[in-house]
């Protein structure tokens, strides 16, 4: 059983939802990212989505674009991000880590080497934002030979027959994009998310995570009711944006700084 599958199984037995924060690796630097990952686990993260930077993040809103620019200003590479996961695994062998980003850095590294190195580093899943199922065969072949899960997106625009195919191709969980738009948008319509999430649940055998536009504990509670997991990106990245790249932060300091994450976790559980 993969670490992701196991995580959802455990949570289900406790009747809990998964809390999945997203951060961009290398923002503001790799050392702080490592401490942030541990602080996030302490704040109640069940799975961490770790963004690897790409210069042209055309599915992301300004908050994550700026995070990527800060990370690239530090010359963070995909290889560095794999090393970061390796360092994280020295202390944490339980929390699944999902790499999230765009295809070109993976193409440049080579699919085979990427899958091998990611698995060896302790990565559990991969989500490639600009790789729809139609273009995924080659990478999937390689991933299926590894222990990695491959997570795909379902959007509000996706029709049912297409969504079914996506659920079949995915492993680990399926990521439901809660709105038409980019990450960090603010026009979330909970009623329409409810309708679409319920429909998706009726035929998707995998756990469903909902993301895009979850900014506060209240929204986390509402969307948590509709799915197996919530993904919080821009709200966390906004807090990370306040950190300075030159400063060394202790895990305690970072835990305090991102207290919104612990609040969201609590709100999700109180539900």
């Amino acid at each position: 059983m993969s670490r992701i599958e196991n995580c959802f199984k455990q949570l289900k037995s406790q009747d809990k939802k998964a809390f999945i924060p997203y951060l961009t690796a290398g923002d503001p630097n790799l050392n702080t990212s490592l401490n942030l990952m541990h602080a996030l686990v302490k704040a109640g993260a069940d799975i961490i989505e770790l963004g690897f930077p790409f210069s042209d993040p055309s599915s992301d809103g300004p908050v994550i674009q700026w995070a990527v620019e800060r990370s690239l200003a530090q010359h963070t590479t995909l290889k560095d991000v794999l090393t970061l996961v390796k360092d994280f695994r020295k202390e944490d062998q339980n929390t699944p880590v999902v790499l999230m980003g765009y295809l070109n850095p993976i193409e440049c590294m080579g699919y085979q080497r990427f899958a091998e190195d990611a698995e060896e580093a302790g990565v559990d899943g991969v989500l490639v934002v600009d790789m729809p199922p139609e273009e995924s065969q080659e990478l999937l072949q390689v991933i299926h030979r590894s222990k990695l899960d491959c997570i795909f997106l379902v959007a509000p625009t996706t029709n049912e027959s297409r969504a079914k195919q996506i659920c079949e191709l995915s492993s680990g969980y399926v990521y439901y994009v809660s709105l038409k738009g980019v990450t960090g948008a603010s026009h979330l319509d909970i009623d329409s998310v409810r309708i679409n999430a319920n429909r998706l649940k009726s035929y998707c055998e995998l756990p469903i995570g909902i993301g895009f536009g979850i900014k506060d504990a209240e929204t986390a509670t509402k969307l948590g009711e509709l799915a197996d997991a919530i993904v919080v990106g821009s709200a966390l990245v906004n807090l990370i944006a306040e950190l300075e790249d030159k400063h060394e932060y202790s895990r305690e300091e970072l835990f305090e700084h991102i207290s919104l994450m612990a609040d969201m976790r609590t709100a999700l559980d109180d539900n």
């Binding site: 600009d130 997106l153 625009t157 029709n159």
Partner: peptide
Amino acid sequence: GGIFVGETLMPA
């Protein structure tokens, strides 16, 4: 060539 975009745009 091909189609490499986020899922939201695929149906469009």
